[in-house]
């Protein structure tokens, strides 16, 4: 992909059409992957020798935690692009990431608590991993509330972009918290740079679930970004032509 085609993606009509076309494909492929991953995780993978069947929560907890952080990075990168190029597409993407990211963060926290209760004897401890993930949820909520509280959209875009950029410092803290501090939370199961610490028959459903959740995030993001772009571009001829047809705009 050259620089010219990246610039083209900044065009609202092209991006809107791309969202509309890709959303059902993202949705269908994610549902299929999640169904296979769930079957593999709940029924095919053997129980863990220490945690027994409770370890199966990993198939819901890890993908949601992964997407919760990925969504924030997307939000921050879109915010930077929006600030530099004043791009409606980038600001729409950033704004759409927030509610989706918040919901995945909520899921990561809840499934983590459901894992923690039988394994650690407590659903919550103020250790570095859990606390930094909770801060991530607050960052998403702060972004949403800040956007709602500023009536002028361009001012709201810029203010929330700054918040998203400042908050991105929390992402490496979440990721490395289990390395930097002595936490109750275990170390990473899958690492880019090291051999996975779980058996292959336990690993493949996890990889499929992570892929499925990522595609599901892409589906939600496409739908929400298309809606956000439609609000921002409602005065433009291209959108009116798309929505009500050529003859009405003639």
């Amino acid at each position: 992909m050259n620089l010219k085609s990246i610039y083209k993606l900044g065009s609202p009509p092209l991006f809107y059409k791309l969202c509309i076309v890709l959303e059902p494909w993202f949705l269908i492929s994610s549902i299929l992957l999640i169904a296979v991953g769930m079957y593999g995780g709940l029924f095919v993978a053997p129980p863990d020798y220490q945690m027994g069947d409770a370890f199966r929560i990993i198939y819901f907890h890890v993908p949601s935690a992964y997407v919760s952080m990925m969504a924030y990075v997307y939000m921050a990168v879109s915010a930077i692009i929006g600030l530099i190029w004043r791009s409606n597409v980038a600001f729409s993407l950033a704004k759409s990431c927030a509610p989706i990211g918040a919901s995945f963060t909520f899921l990561a926290l809840i499934t983590g608590m459901l894992w923690g209760k039988p394994m650690w004897g407590t659903a919550w401890v103020w250790d570095a991993r859990l606390t930094s993930e909770l801060i991530l949820l607050f960052l998403y909520l702060a972004y949403i509330m800040l956007h709602l509280s500023i009536p002028d959209r361009s001012k709201a875009d810029r203010a929330t972009a700054l918040l998203a950029i400042v908050g991105v410092v929390n992402i490496p803290i979440i990721h490395y918290s289990v390395v930097w501090w002595n936490t109750l939370h275990q170390a990473s199961t899958i690492s880019k740079f090291a051999k996975p610490s779980i058996a292959t028959e336990m690993l493949w459903p996890l990889v499929i679930m992570i892929l499925g959740y990522t595609l599901l995030f892409a589906a939600f993001l496409s739908k929400r970004t298309a809606a956000e772009l439609a609000v921002r571009e409602k005065r433009t001829r291209w959108l009116q032509t798309l929505i009500v047809g050529d003859k009405n705009n003639a």
Partner: peptide, 13 residues
């Protein structure tokens, strides 16, 4: 294996 509430609770949520 006795963890039904936690596992199925995670699935449903």
């Amino acid at each position: 294996g006795g963890y039904g509430f936690y596992v199925w609770g995670s699935v449903l949520i």
